[in-house]
Simulated scan of single mutants.
Amino acid sequence: MAKDNKQNSAQTTDVAQVNTEQLQKRIAEQTQTISQLTARNEELAAELDKLKRANAALQAEISTPKAAAPAPRGTHIRVAALSNGYFRGGVQFSQVPQELEIAKLSKEQLAAIRGDERLVVVDL
C-alpha cells in the first residue's frame, strides 16, 4: 500500500509538472500576443491621429469662402480635372478636357464646377 501511495504521489507530481509547463507555455504565448496587439494598437492610434489632422485640414478648406465665380462668357466651357475619375456637379471629369454646354447645366452645377480648385475651367 505504501508503494501504491508513492507511485500515486509520483504520478500526481508528474501531472502537476506537465500542467505547470503547459500553463507557462500558454502564458508566454499570451504575453507575446498582448505585446503584438499593443504595438498594433499604437500604430492604429498614430494612423487615426494622422487621419484626424487630414480631416481637420479638409474641413477648413471646405469652410473657407470662395470668391464668386465670374459670369459665363460663352455658351460652352472646357473642363479638365487634376486627376482622373473626379466628380463635381454630377459630372465625371478626367485629365482629358471635355466641353460642356452651359445651358444644359443648372446654376448649382455650374457654380460647383467653376468653384472647384481641382478643376481647370475655360470659357469658350
Rank of each mutant, 00 (worst) to 15 (best):
P65C: 01
T38M: 11
V91S: 01
Q59H: 07
T75S: 10
I77S: 05
Q11Y: 05
Q11W: 04
L110C: 09
T75A: 10
A103L: 14
Q22P: 14
D116W: 02
R114G: 03
N8P: 02
N8H: 05
A46C: 09
N5W: 04
I27S: 09
S106L: 00
T13N: 06
K66W: 00
Q11E: 07
Q30P: 03
Y86R: 09
Q11L: 04
L23P: 15
V15F: 04
T31P: 08
A68C: 01
E29M: 03
Q98C: 03
D123C: 02
Q95S: 12
D4Y: 12
L82V: 09
R73M: 00
T33C: 06
H76M: 05
T20L: 15
Y86F: 04
Q36C: 12
E29Q: 08
R88W: 05
Q30D: 07
A112V: 07
D49L: 12
F87C: 00
I102Q: 07
G90Y: 11
N5S: 08
Q17N: 14
E21W: 02
L82S: 11
I27F: 10
G90C: 14
A69Q: 05
F87L: 06
V120C: 02
G74N: 00
T20S: 15
I102C: 00
G115A: 03
S63R: 13
S106R: 00
S83Y: 09
A39Y: 04
A57N: 15
V122P: 12
A111T: 11
Q11F: 02
V15S: 03
N41I: 04
V120A: 09
L124F: 01
Q24F: 06
F93T: 04
I62R: 10
D4I: 11
Q36G: 03
K6I: 12
L82H: 04
S9Q: 05
Q30N: 11
V96P: 13
R40C: 12
L110S: 01
Q98H: 02
T75V: 05
E42T: 13
L100C: 00
E108V: 08
K104L: 01
K107E: 10
N55W: 02
F87A: 10
I77G: 01
A54C: 04
L124D: 07
D14H: 05
L44G: 07
H76C: 05
V96W: 01
K104F: 01
T13W: 10
K50E: 14
L23T: 15
E101F: 00
H76G: 11
E21F: 05
A56W: 06
I113T: 00
N84K: 14
R114A: 03
Q36T: 12
G115T: 00
V15I: 10
A39N: 04
A57H: 13
F93P: 13
N55G: 10
V79E: 05
T33D: 03
L37N: 13
A10N: 06
A71V: 09
V122W: 09
S83V: 09
V79D: 11
E29W: 10
D116L: 00
N19K: 09
S35D: 15
Q30C: 02
T33I: 14
A81Q: 00
S63M: 06
L48W: 07
Q32E: 14
L48E: 15
R114N: 08
A103R: 02
T64V: 03
A103K: 01
